[in-house]
Protein backbone atom coordinates (compact mmCIF):
# COMPACT_ATOMS: atom_id res chain seq x y z
CA UNK A 1 0.00 0.00 0.00
CA UNK A 2 1.36 3.43 -0.90
CA UNK A 3 0.49 5.93 1.77
CA UNK A 4 2.09 8.41 4.13
CA UNK A 5 1.34 9.70 7.61
CA UNK A 6 2.78 12.39 9.81
CA UNK A 7 1.95 14.25 13.00
CA UNK A 8 3.21 17.23 14.96
CA UNK A 9 2.80 18.14 18.64
CA UNK A 10 3.44 21.69 19.88
CA UNK A 11 4.42 20.99 23.47
CA UNK A 12 3.43 24.43 24.77
CA UNK A 13 -0.14 23.68 23.71
CA UNK A 14 -0.26 20.51 25.81
CA UNK A 15 -0.93 20.19 29.53
CA UNK A 16 2.47 19.19 30.94
CA UNK A 17 1.19 18.21 34.38
CA UNK A 18 -1.53 16.05 32.91
CA UNK A 19 0.77 14.41 30.32
CA UNK A 20 2.81 12.70 33.03
CA UNK A 21 -0.19 11.54 35.05
CA UNK A 22 -0.94 7.79 34.82
CA UNK A 23 -4.58 8.52 34.11
CA UNK A 24 -3.48 10.30 30.93
CA UNK A 25 -0.57 8.29 29.61
CA UNK A 26 -2.17 4.92 30.36
CA UNK A 27 -4.72 5.76 27.67
CA UNK A 28 -1.90 6.12 25.13
CA UNK A 29 0.88 3.75 26.17
CA UNK A 30 0.80 0.00 26.79
CA UNK A 31 2.72 -1.39 29.77
CA UNK A 32 5.50 -2.63 27.47
CA UNK A 33 5.82 0.87 26.01
CA UNK A 34 5.98 2.44 29.47
CA UNK A 35 8.89 0.10 30.22
CA UNK A 36 10.72 1.38 27.13
CA UNK A 37 11.17 4.70 28.88
CA UNK A 38 13.39 3.22 31.55
CA UNK A 39 15.88 1.81 29.06
CA UNK A 40 19.10 3.71 29.08
CA UNK A 41 19.07 4.60 25.38
CA UNK A 42 16.30 7.17 25.80
CA UNK A 43 17.25 8.57 29.19
CA UNK A 44 17.76 12.05 27.72
CA UNK A 45 14.02 12.40 27.10
CA UNK A 46 11.72 13.70 29.81
CA UNK A 47 8.74 11.44 30.41
CA UNK A 48 6.48 14.17 29.03
CA UNK A 49 8.39 14.20 25.74
CA UNK A 50 8.43 10.41 25.67
CA UNK A 51 4.62 10.31 25.98
CA UNK A 52 4.15 12.82 23.16
CA UNK A 53 6.80 11.18 20.98
CA UNK A 54 4.90 7.91 21.14
CA UNK A 55 1.59 9.72 20.63
CA UNK A 56 2.92 11.35 17.46
CA UNK A 57 4.18 8.00 16.16
CA UNK A 58 0.82 6.33 16.81
CA UNK A 59 -1.17 9.20 15.29
CA UNK A 60 1.06 9.07 12.20
CA UNK A 61 0.43 5.33 11.77
CA UNK A 62 -3.30 5.93 12.15
CA UNK A 63 -3.23 8.63 9.47
CA UNK A 64 -1.23 6.34 7.17
CA UNK A 65 -3.79 3.54 7.57
CA UNK A 66 -6.92 5.69 7.55
CA UNK A 67 -6.31 6.62 3.93
CA UNK A 68 -7.09 3.06 2.83
CA UNK A 69 -9.45 2.19 5.71
CA UNK A 70 -11.81 5.18 6.07
CA UNK A 71 -13.78 3.54 8.91
CA UNK A 72 -10.68 2.93 11.04
CA UNK A 73 -10.91 4.39 14.56
CA UNK A 74 -7.89 5.76 16.42
CA UNK A 75 -7.03 3.58 19.40
CA UNK A 76 -3.48 4.45 20.51
CA UNK A 77 -2.94 1.40 22.70
CA UNK A 78 -3.59 -0.93 19.76
CA UNK A 79 -0.67 0.55 17.81
CA UNK A 80 2.35 -1.06 19.44
CA UNK A 81 5.82 0.49 19.44
CA UNK A 82 8.27 -2.31 20.05
CA UNK A 83 11.55 -0.46 19.88
CA UNK A 84 13.07 3.03 19.88
CA UNK A 85 16.48 4.07 18.61
CA UNK A 86 17.82 7.29 20.07
CA UNK A 87 20.13 9.59 18.08
CA UNK A 88 22.50 9.75 21.11
CA UNK A 89 23.17 13.43 20.75
CA UNK A 90 23.38 14.23 24.41
CA UNK A 91 20.22 16.19 24.97
CA UNK A 92 17.14 17.75 23.45
CA UNK A 93 17.68 21.15 21.81
CA UNK A 94 15.50 24.00 20.63
CA UNK A 95 13.91 23.95 17.16
CA UNK A 96 16.34 26.55 15.83
CA UNK A 97 15.02 26.66 12.28
CA UNK A 98 12.20 28.67 10.75
CA UNK A 99 11.64 25.59 8.67
CA UNK A 100 13.31 22.24 8.14
CA UNK A 101 12.94 19.85 5.20
CA UNK A 102 14.61 16.50 4.63
CA UNK A 103 17.05 16.14 1.80
CA UNK A 104 17.38 13.23 -0.62
CA UNK A 105 19.36 10.31 0.77
CA UNK A 106 19.82 12.17 4.01
CA UNK A 107 21.16 10.02 6.81
CA UNK A 108 18.96 9.89 9.86
CA UNK A 109 20.94 12.24 12.05
CA UNK A 110 19.13 13.69 15.05
CA UNK A 111 16.18 11.39 14.49
CA UNK A 112 14.44 9.04 16.89
CA UNK A 113 13.43 5.89 15.05
CA UNK A 114 10.76 3.40 16.05
CA UNK A 115 9.50 0.07 14.79
CA UNK A 116 5.75 -0.28 15.12
CA UNK A 117 3.27 -3.13 14.83
CA UNK A 118 -0.39 -2.57 14.02
CA UNK A 119 -2.27 -5.79 13.39
CA UNK A 120 -0.31 -7.67 10.71
CA UNK A 121 1.45 -4.52 9.43
CA UNK A 122 4.93 -3.26 10.32
CA UNK A 123 5.79 0.44 10.21
CA UNK A 124 8.91 2.53 10.71
CA UNK A 125 8.93 6.04 12.08
CA UNK A 126 11.44 8.83 12.28
CA UNK A 127 10.92 11.77 14.61
CA UNK A 128 12.51 15.09 15.39
CA UNK A 129 12.28 15.92 19.09
CA UNK A 130 12.94 19.47 20.25
CA UNK A 131 12.14 21.53 23.35
CA UNK A 132 9.06 23.03 21.73
CA UNK A 133 7.92 20.47 19.19
CA UNK A 134 7.84 16.79 18.29
CA UNK A 135 7.27 15.77 14.67
CA UNK A 136 7.00 12.29 13.20
CA UNK A 137 6.75 10.68 9.79
CA UNK A 138 5.95 6.99 9.24
CA UNK A 139 6.55 4.64 6.34
CA UNK A 140 6.46 0.93 5.59
CA UNK A 141 9.86 1.39 3.93
CA UNK A 142 12.61 1.29 6.55
CA UNK A 143 14.82 3.60 4.47
CA UNK A 144 12.04 6.12 3.76
CA UNK A 145 12.92 6.01 0.06
CA UNK A 146 11.20 8.70 -2.03
CA UNK A 147 9.69 10.19 1.12
CA UNK A 148 9.56 13.95 1.65
CA UNK A 149 9.01 15.61 5.01
CA UNK A 150 8.98 19.18 6.29
CA UNK A 151 8.41 21.07 9.54
CA UNK A 152 7.88 24.81 9.96
CA UNK A 153 7.10 27.30 12.71
CA UNK A 154 4.48 29.95 11.95
CA UNK A 155 3.51 33.24 13.58
CA UNK A 156 -0.18 32.70 14.24
CA UNK A 157 -1.63 29.74 16.16
CA UNK A 158 -5.13 30.20 14.68
CA UNK A 159 -6.68 27.18 12.97
CA UNK A 160 -7.18 29.09 9.72
CA UNK A 161 -3.56 30.29 9.68
CA UNK A 162 -2.28 26.75 10.34
CA UNK A 163 -4.44 25.26 7.62
CA UNK A 164 -3.45 27.86 5.04
CA UNK A 165 0.25 27.78 5.92
CA UNK A 166 0.62 24.01 5.79
CA UNK A 167 -0.93 23.87 2.32
CA UNK A 168 1.37 26.60 1.05
CA UNK A 169 4.37 24.85 2.65
CA UNK A 170 3.75 21.47 1.02
CA UNK A 171 2.82 22.98 -2.35
CA UNK A 172 6.06 24.92 -2.40
CA UNK A 173 8.01 21.67 -2.05
CA UNK A 174 5.82 19.80 -4.51
CA UNK A 175 6.12 22.53 -7.12
CA UNK A 176 9.90 22.53 -6.77
CA UNK A 177 9.98 18.81 -7.60
CA UNK A 178 7.03 18.34 -9.94
CA UNK A 179 7.09 21.51 -12.03
CA UNK A 180 8.22 19.55 -15.11
CA UNK A 181 5.49 16.92 -14.72
CA UNK A 182 2.41 18.76 -13.53
CA UNK A 183 0.94 22.24 -13.53
CA UNK A 184 -1.61 24.04 -11.39
CA UNK A 185 -1.02 21.95 -8.26
CA UNK A 186 -3.38 22.37 -5.34
CA UNK A 187 -4.46 20.50 -2.22
CA UNK A 188 -8.06 19.31 -2.03
CA UNK A 189 -9.96 16.95 0.25
CA UNK A 190 -11.55 13.61 -0.55
CA UNK A 191 -14.94 12.51 0.78
CA UNK A 192 -13.34 11.23 3.98
CA UNK A 193 -11.73 14.60 4.57
CA UNK A 194 -8.21 13.46 3.67
CA UNK A 195 -5.88 15.75 1.72
CA UNK A 196 -5.38 14.89 -1.93
CA UNK A 197 -3.03 16.44 -4.46
CA UNK A 198 -4.70 17.88 -7.55
CA UNK A 199 -3.28 19.01 -10.90
CA UNK A 200 -6.04 21.24 -12.16
CA UNK A 201 -9.14 19.13 -11.47
CA UNK A 202 -7.29 15.80 -11.74
CA UNK A 203 -6.42 13.91 -8.55
CA UNK A 204 -2.85 12.63 -8.58
CA UNK A 205 -1.76 9.35 -7.06
CA UNK A 206 0.65 11.06 -4.69
CA UNK A 207 -0.34 10.61 -1.05
CA UNK A 208 0.05 13.71 1.09
CA UNK A 209 -0.29 14.01 4.86
CA UNK A 210 -0.66 17.35 6.66
CA UNK A 211 -0.36 18.15 10.36
CA UNK A 212 -0.66 21.33 12.39
CA UNK A 213 -0.74 22.20 16.07
CA UNK A 214 -0.52 25.68 17.54
CA UNK A 215 2.46 27.45 15.92
CA UNK A 216 3.86 24.43 14.09
CA UNK A 217 2.96 22.80 10.80
CA UNK A 218 4.32 19.75 8.97
CA UNK A 219 3.82 17.69 5.82
CA UNK A 220 4.89 14.37 4.40
CA UNK A 221 4.42 12.91 0.93
CA UNK A 222 5.81 10.05 -1.07
CA UNK A 223 6.63 9.94 -4.78
CA UNK A 224 7.00 7.00 -7.10
CA UNK A 225 10.62 6.30 -8.18
CA UNK A 226 10.09 7.47 -11.77
CA UNK A 227 8.92 10.90 -10.63
CA UNK A 228 11.64 11.11 -8.02
CA UNK A 229 14.39 10.79 -10.63
CA UNK A 230 13.47 14.02 -12.41
Amino acid sequence: MTSTGNDIVALKATNQQRSIHPRFYSKILSLSEQELFYRQVIKELSFEKFVWLLWSVKESVYKFMKRSEPTLLFSPVKIIIRGIDSPFRGGVTRFKYRQWENKNNQAGEDLYKCEIVFGPAIFYSRSKVHDEVIATEVSQNKNFDYSYWGIKSIDSPSYEAQSEAVRAFVLNRLNSILAHDYTDLSIGKNLQGYPVLLSGARELNIPVSLAHHDRFIAYSFILSPNIHTH
Binding site: D7, V9, A13, T14, N15, R18, R23, F24, K27, I28, W52, W55, E59, F74, Y159, G193, H213
Partner: peptide
Protein backbone atom coordinates in the same frame (compact mmCIF):
# COMPACT_ATOMS: atom_id res chain seq x y z
CA UNK B 1 -13.61 17.80 11.34
CA UNK B 2 -16.50 20.04 12.44
CA UNK B 3 -15.40 21.50 15.78
CA UNK B 4 -11.72 21.79 14.69
CA UNK B 5 -10.51 20.17 17.90
CA UNK B 6 -6.90 19.04 17.64
CA UNK B 7 -6.45 15.29 17.96
CA UNK B 8 -3.82 15.91 20.66
CA UNK B 9 -6.71 16.96 22.93
CA UNK B 10 -8.80 13.81 22.50
CA UNK B 11 -7.41 12.14 25.62
CA UNK B 12 -8.00 15.38 27.57
CA UNK B 13 -11.64 15.28 26.53
CA UNK B 14 -12.03 11.65 27.61
CA UNK B 15 -10.49 12.39 31.04
Amino acid sequence: KDLKINSANLVDIII
